[in-house]
């Protein structure tokens, strides 16, 4: 992997890639592969599918790079839009396979070093993913961009083609819906308090 390209600014790399420099594109790939992989992984819940989709995202980006307009959306947002379209196609093609297991969920918190806690948390994560995947697609996308990619409302707005204020409202509505669904299924942090919106309504 080229060392010289590492120090080059993104805008210059893009210009070079548009002009046909594959190594410049390779450097852009290295800068974004993890983020796109994360997006695909959380949207499919499967390592192999995530790898396959990630590869397709970058292949498509490479073949359409000459159409990329710097003044339109940032390069990252352009990549996410490609990923979003490919994941949407993937879901359409795999419509019947509704339940998506989260395989080999990467663990990162100390609690998970204890085997029993690990199993319990693994189950909880699978339940959470199941609830998230029951939400409308744009809400799933918003949650992953926010919590996994750690993007601001403005950045998410550029990817989802919405205003910052619209994302703020959508985020609020998404958490309300998620909380309702999680309370109904008895999972998540609200479960312990024994109070849910549905219970309150009764």
């Amino acid at each position: 992997m080229s060392m010289a390209y590492e120090k080059i600014e993104e805008a210059d790399l893009i210009t070079a890639a548009v002009a046909g420099d594959k190594q410049a594109f390779g450097e852009l790939y290295l800068r974004y592969v993890e983020r796109i992989y994360n997006y695909c992984y959380y949207r499919t819940g499967n390592t192999q599918e995530a790898e396959d989709l990630t590869a397709r995202v970058f292949m498509r980006a490479l073949s359409h790079i000459e159409n990329y307009d710097e003044r339109g959306v940032p390069f990252s947002a352009w990549l996410y839009r490609i990923a979003h379209n490919l994941v949407a196609n993937w879901h359409r093609d795999n419509n019947r396979r509704k339940v998506i297991p989260i395989d080999d969920f990467i663990v990162s918190r100390n609690l998970e070093e204890v085997p029993e806690v690990f199993t319990e948390l693994q189950e909880e994560k699978e339940q959470l993913m199941d609830v998230i995947q029951s939400l409308p697609e744009e809400r799933q996308q918003l949650l992953f961009l926010k919590f996994v990619e750690k993007l601001s409302n403005a950045e998410i707005g550029q990817i989802m083609n919405r205003t910052e204020g619209a994302i703020k409202s959508l985020y609020h509505r998404t958490l309300l819906a998620l909380q309702d669904e999680m309370s109904a299924r008895g999972i998540g942090p609200i479960r312990n308090s024994g109070i849910s919106r549905r219970q309150n309504k009764k």
Partner: peptide
């Protein structure tokens, strides 16, 4: 509290280095 919970439950994952490397080779050619 739900935001706090999601932050804990949705960690950033890393692709395998082999995958990253092989796709790089394929793209750069």
């Amino acid at each position: 509290r739900l935001a706090d919970y999601l932050y804990t439950m949705l960690p950033y994952v890393k692709p395998s280095p082999e995958f990253v490397e092989s796709l790089y080779e394929e793209l750069v050619g």
